[in-house]
Write a protein that binds this DNA or RNA. Structure first.
Lengths: 345, 345
DNA sequence: CCAAGGACCGTTAGCGGTAACATAGCGCAT
DNA sequence: ATGCGCTATGTTACCGCTAACGGTCCTTGG
């Protein structure tokens, strides 16, 4: 009695119920409900009314099995909590909304094992496409994607070989660009503050590009500070205080993301540090939050909305040549110097 | 040739392929893969190996149809972009992760029409439960929920009649509590700053509770300011500036959420306003972001994680009495006075 | 007037699994 | 030896819907 929900008096409705209520065959009802094939206006109306009156809700499980077609798109992302992926999702939804395709989101928490599990679960629903963040996957996950027989779009990153289609920016180049901008402004003693996440490959690639550009100028990072978990804004504050008390001579701090960058900026403002004169700051992502700070943090836009839109357009074949496989789109991130990098000298 | 993905040389695998590869019946393969029923150790191993070697991924569409059971839980929320619902999702996932149930998220953007559409889509997958934010639904949506024949949990709000189960806080009382705290601290000329969202019923209820408590003390809101869209932090800044330039005599600002509250706080700090002496501030939600500000904003925790966990526990029957229907859980929000309300006089 | 071609609707045969029930083989107490 | 109970596996009949095809009218041009 505890778990019994609606004992069985009213089974859940099927096409048959609607067909009996409207006096036509199940097939005709199916045609009406899917708006496919020829049905006369009068029977269409009759069927629609019956369906609505009964409160019939189609069974996509059965429909999907019969038609071998499912209007789902699997979207696999590392996290929902950092503001960046929700915006990608928004882009995806915008495009998918008018196509009958529906995104289903899976979250991996930056864990390859979880990615593999989530992917397996998703593929078992036989979606008509997959959008997955990043190019790095376990061997098993890669095999599943390769053999799924559906279009795959890897997003956010183009630095590496793609399984099928890919949309994103080069984080290596993004790091490089930022470093060059910083160097051009005359900063020389540079520290890095980032997250302790071995599986955040995009952050890693940005840092690699960054240090490569420093190396090309005969420089290296002077110091690093990492954090793990907790409020990013607060951590940014604390880390900044820590690194500056250890190395007060640093003249630039490069943050792996805008949240900790914003925290650092708040600390500098509160501490009365001359930004960008004595100390320059830069983050990454172009999050909306930054607009609310008194001083605008230098950042780089990862084109999140655009990435989501482009990925969805590939899956729906809305590309230039109508292809939905093997497409490669590299977007160019815009560097916003904000007010925390001084003018080039 | 454009859209053709994997021409058809290798069809997608079925149980039959695994059964042939391992020399047992499809049924036995099914038993092995679901870990159900008696299968000898040796055949189990053989089947597992065959499935792995082939790269077989079960078809849950077919399985769901046959078993009349689908391990999905529909989760319907208004938004993903404001940090509050992701935390609810985290709570839900934490509990569901070990149960084989999988959340599927739908976003309504605070639109009743979209809620109805999303709900219809979700129900057509025949999930084993629904978690939906809020108690307000269109008639059609309410009918669908009532007739779905599965456990329904409405979350985040308990101020009103529930369809089935409900988990949340009373926003009316939350607003009331905040008002009483503010009044006890001696503030008297109070302004409100909020979002222009007619369908955010919880914000509305908080404000109703708030004004009711003011009225009980013979007071009313002195002024209001609304915004719509854009960066909440920035809007909070701008609105605060606007309302204060219009009514410099106000001694308290009540914000409908923490993001705009934080923006307001930043403005006040930058403008050198004495907080909480001359002006008190309070928001709502207890978002993590606030930890990173120099001055902690007064707020009220909406128990988001706990709400998510409790909702999931209801669906999985992990309640005190094992019920998964008709449960009502009212949580008590914790008021955190932070540093923006002065001590009661 | 008739064949051809729509418009409209029904029938049949699955889709890929699983519930429920059979069946086969074996050990063991009687 | 017999029969019972258990384990391990196979068989059958769907689940609710749709693709594919077939049939019946009715229109229409020659």
């Amino acid at each position: 009695m505890a778990n019994d929900h609606r004992p069985d008096t009213r089974r859940t409705l099927t096409l048959r119920d609607v067909s009996e209520a409207s006096g036509v065959s199940e097939m005709t009802v199916s045609r009406v409900l899917r708006n496919r094939g020829d049905v006369s206006r009068s029977t269409r109306d009759r069927v629609m009314k019956a369906a609505k009156d009964l409160g019939y809700v189609p069974n996509k499980i059965a429909g999907g099995l019969a038609s071998q077609r499912v209007n789902l798109v699997a979207v696999i992302i590392p996290s929902l909590s950092n503001m960046v992926f929700p915006e990608v999702l928004t882009g995806i939804s915008q495009v998918l909304d008018d196509t009958g395709l529906q995104p289903v989101v899976g979250v991996t928490n930056y864990s390859p094992e979880r990615e593999e599990r989530v992917l397996y679960e998703m593929l078992s629903w036989r979606p008509s496409g997959v959008i997955v963040a990043g190019l790095e996957h376990s061997d098993a996950a890669r095999a599943m994607l390769t053999n799924a027989g559906i279009p795959i779009v890897e997003i956010m990153d183009v630095d590496g070989p793609a399984i099928d289609s890919v949309v994103g920016i080069s984080h290596h180049r993004a790091g490089q660009m930022m470093a060059q901008t910083i160097l051009a402004a005359g900063y020389r003693r540079i520290g890095f503050l980032g997250t302790q996440m071995p599986h955040d490959h995009r952050a890693r690639k940005r840092l690699e590009g960054f240090t490569a550009a420093l190396a090309a100028a005969g420089l290296a990072l002077e110091d690093r500070e990492y954090y793990d978990g907790g409020s990013a804004l607060l951590k940014g504050r604390e880390m900044t205080q820590a690194i500056l008390s250890r190395r007060p001579d640093l003249d630039f701090l490069y943050y792996s993301n805008d949240m900790i960058g914003a925290g650092g900026l708040l600390h500098c403002l509160d501490a009365g540090i001359d930004v960008p004169g004595r100390l320059g700051l830069a983050g990454f992502n172009g999050v909306e939050l930054l607009d609310g700070l008194r001083v605008r943090l230098a950042t780089m836009d990862a084109c999140r909305l655009e990435v989501g839109r482009a990925a969805a357009e590939i899956l729906t074949g809305k590309t230039a040549d109508g292809r939905s496989s093997g497409v490669r789109i590299e977007l160019t991130p815009r560097l916003d110097p904000g007010q925390t990098i001084r003018a080039p000298r």
